[in-house]
Amino acid sequence: MARIYLCPTGFCKSPQAEHGDALRLAGGMVYVHRFAVIIAEAGRVVQRHLASPASMPEVLAKLPAELAAEAEEQWANLSLAHPPLQCGDRIIRLDQPQIMGILNVTPDSFSDGGQFLGDDDVARAHAGEMLSAGAAILDIGGESTRPGADPVWEGDEIKRVVPAVEFSSAMGAAISVDTRRPAVMEAAQKAGAHIYNDVSALRHDPRSLEFAAASGLTVVLMHAPGSGDNLHEGADYNNVVFDVFEWLRERRDAAIEAGVRSDRIILDPGLGFGKSLSENLALMNNLALFHALGHPLLLGVSRKRMIGALSKEAPAHDRLGGSLALAIAGMNAGCQLLRVHDVAETAQARDVWRGQRDAALTDFTLND
């Protein structure tokens, strides 16, 4: 079956750079002048047309009838401005990149396992440092999802996560919890959490969809090929970009059908989960396509294995430069949320990036 994809390809610093013929991507700080309108079958591109906002109506009008409605929906989604996230008393605007700071209360996470587990004072201090450094959200995880990690009993996960949620809530933080288990998320919500960040996209537990809908929480749906304890296994892509797009669409639709509000869904393409280096790079180079699904995007690439693979096998604790490079690439693609370990450095990079974007809106103007 033929599928259609509207992929932003030609970015510009400001609309005036293209005499106004540019689209403001997802209501953010990124502008796009050129789009690839792609028709694919079984992951293979069979037609590709280039269009600008001015010429897009003409291109869409010539599409096959069975693809026209989907193309129109994607075109509308690419310019859709998302409402702020309401996290208790905190309001997180999505018209600019926001930082989600990682707090792992686990013994075996790939980058900082054990560093913040078992000592609430140390974990509390780190949470406070991330908030002070510019984290809009704290993402708390009690189970490692690195390749080969052992699954955690939900009772142990609750014991790890809930105290961290409680002291983060006492600081007034917006809180996300990285878990696959609705029982953990239910306990975390009672302790003050606001976002259900499920790396299995509500597949791991048969109760997840029902709980997500009933809870009223904002939900992050992340792509991962594995359906059991190992989220990294079973990858088989015709075209990783199109396949992840369709997979996230299916999980989004399942969540909405179960009762999750569309405006409370965030999508994450799952960089590093069951993907090779070349597949991760393909996703990074086409992140902007995922705005066509009509939801905010979360990017989690901080300190990941792909950085080591591209930088002489640098260990996880020595991947700051690569993490910042990928974070900036995510900002350039319009990603609204960046999940990172190094909050202060990423916040500084984001603030400089934002200053450049603001300045570009007044560049090259004619003086009277």
Rank of each mutant, 00 (worst) to 15 (best):
G270Q: 01
A193N: 05
I175C: 02
D89P: 01
W153G: 15
N104L: 06
E279H: 11
L277G: 00
E73K: 14
L78Q: 12
K62S: 10
V59R: 10
K304R: 09
F364S: 13
D243Y: 02
P8L: 03
N280Q: 01
L80K: 08
D236S: 05
V184P: 13
M130S: 11
C87T: 06
Y5Q: 03
P163N: 05
Y237Q: 02
V30E: 02
L221A: 01
S227V: 15
E72F: 14
L103R: 13
L320R: 05
R93T: 12
F35M: 02
R264H: 06
R350P: 12
L298E: 04
A61I: 06
L25Q: 06
A333D: 01
A71T: 06
A309S: 06
D205Q: 15
G322T: 04
P296A: 03
A255Q: 11
L85D: 04
L310G: 01
P8M: 02
I266G: 04
H204Y: 15
A149Y: 11
L50W: 15
D178R: 05
F364P: 15
F273Y: 07
R261P: 07
F364G: 13
A170E: 08
R34H: 10
P163S: 02
S79Y: 09
D21K: 07
Q336L: 00
G300T: 04
A316T: 12
C87V: 09
P15F: 08
V46L: 04
A235I: 02
R146E: 07
A71S: 07
L287D: 11
D318L: 11
A316Q: 11
Q336T: 02
A187M: 02
A329S: 03
H232S: 05
G330H: 06
R303M: 03
A127P: 03
D205A: 14
L217D: 11
C335D: 06
N285W: 07
D243A: 03
W75T: 06
P8A: 00
G172W: 12
S323N: 09
T106H: 04
M306C: 03
E210D: 10
L117V: 06
F167N: 05
F110H: 11
G322D: 00
R93N: 13
C7F: 04
G228M: 00
R90D: 13
N285H: 09
L281Y: 14
C7H: 08
D119Y: 03
V301G: 00
I158D: 04
R90M: 14
A54F: 03
N77I: 05
A191T: 05
F245D: 05
A316G: 11
M130V: 08
L281Q: 14
A174K: 04
